[in-house]
């Protein structure tokens, strides 16, 4: 088990806490919580060790485009970068409270 942390400057806020994803092979859980310190602070717990660079690449890109002030907690179960990116986007959408998928 490895814990990774990343930080990005942020200007935008999110409206509410969100929790998406599942505990299961090749997937991950993402918890987004609003934060007021002008940063995105990401903590990742993963069972797949040695992928720090891959995480950095996915997160750099995501938080450059989405500069949200939030505490982000990720429990990873060996998700691919594609799955990570989708789950982050999903968590962001839920946190902005536009559940149009359910309309």
């Amino acid at each position: 088990m490895e814990t990774l942390t990343f930080e990005y400057r942020a200007t935008r806020t999110i409206h509410q806490r969100s929790h998406v994803g599942v505990v299961g092979s090749g997937d991950l859980e993402v918890l987004l919580e609003p934060s007021s310190n002008g940063q995105a602070q990401i903590t990742i717990r993963t069972g797949s060790e040695g992928f720090g660079d891959a995480w950095k690449a996915v997160l750099d890109r995501f938080f450059l485009v989405n500069d949200i002030a939030a505490k982000v907690t990720i429990n990873d179960f060996g998700a691919t970068p594609g799955v990570v990116n989708l789950r982050l986007a999903q968590a962001l959408e839920v946190s902005q409270d536009v559940p149009h998928h359910q309309r």
Partner: peptide
């Protein structure tokens, strides 16, 4: 029961 869900396809994952 919540939407969307993650679908793993041969062309990659999608919601």
């Amino acid at each position: 029961g919540k939407s969307p869900v993650l679908l793993r396809t041969e062309n990659g994952p999608q919601l």
